[in-house]
């Protein structure tokens, strides 16, 4: 194959685009700007770490099944780990998004970083909701019977029937996790691609900074 032919291959073009957009030093950098040394920057990674615990415990629950998490004490424990890691996940995500809001971290062509965050947040809420109605207990019965009228009022009930346990379970353990993980992956790749947003300029003219 001649070099021009190789240059025309879509695989070659695709690889070149990827490696120029995100060379490995940018993908996993050795250092960060000094302003990143603040606790507020820890909350993105805290969100990511708690998400990993959510997915890990969710996999154990999926392998063992509802009877196990209702009836055995180890099952109860893993079920609790799943619930409480979700609480930590949302807690960290909210502190993270407040931080990014007050930094206006969408500045400098970072709109997509912010917007993938917004969509991930919404997808996480939907994941949590389908989880609450998948508990298979009185709580999930109560939530789904309360929610059905609201969702039917939007017309969505025909496609998304909260009283259909099997459907909700599939949304919760297949579709929504895939969406949340893919969106989170995009979010983090975009953060690396754009780099950390610089702080606001100090506009207090003539002020001597200590």
């Amino acid at each position: 194959m001649s070099t021009t032919e190789i240059d025309r291959q879509w695989t070659t073009k695709f690889r070149r685009r990827l490696t120029t957009a995100l060379p490995s030093e940018k993908l996993l950098p050795d250092t960060q700007p000094s302003y990143v040394a603040s606790w507020i920057y820890v909350f993105g990674v805290a969100t990511l770490s708690s998400m990993m615990v959510v997915i890990g415990t969710g996999c154990i629950l999926a392998i063992m099944g509802p009877l196990w998490w209702h009836e055995s004490s180890v099952g109860h424990f893993v079920n609790s780990l799943h619930l409480w890691s979700v609480e930590v996940f949302f807690f960290a995500m909210v502190v993270h998004l407040w931080g990014k809001f007050f930094m206006a971290a969408w500045r400098g062509k970072r709109q997509l970083v912010w917007m993938t965050g917004v969509v991930t947040f919404l997808a996480s809420v939907a994941t949590a909701f389908t989880g609450y109605v998948s508990q298979t207990n009185f709580d999930s019965q109560w939530i789904s019977t309360q929610a059905k009228d609201g969702i039917n009022a939007t017309g969505g009930g025909a496609f998304f029937n909260v009283l259909n346990t099997g459907q909700m379970f599939m949304w919760h353990i297949v579709l929504m996790p895939i969406a949340a993980v893919v969106l989170t992956g995009l979010h983090i790749l975009l953060v690396r691609y754009r780099g950390v947003v610089p702080p606001f300029e100090d506009t207090s003219a003539g002020k001597v900074r200590a």
Partner: peptide, 19 residues
Amino acid sequence: ILMIATFIAALVVPFPGRR
């Protein structure tokens, strides 16, 4: 309230190892 407290703490508590 805990989220607000954590947010404020994240801004004011010094980060270890920061020169």
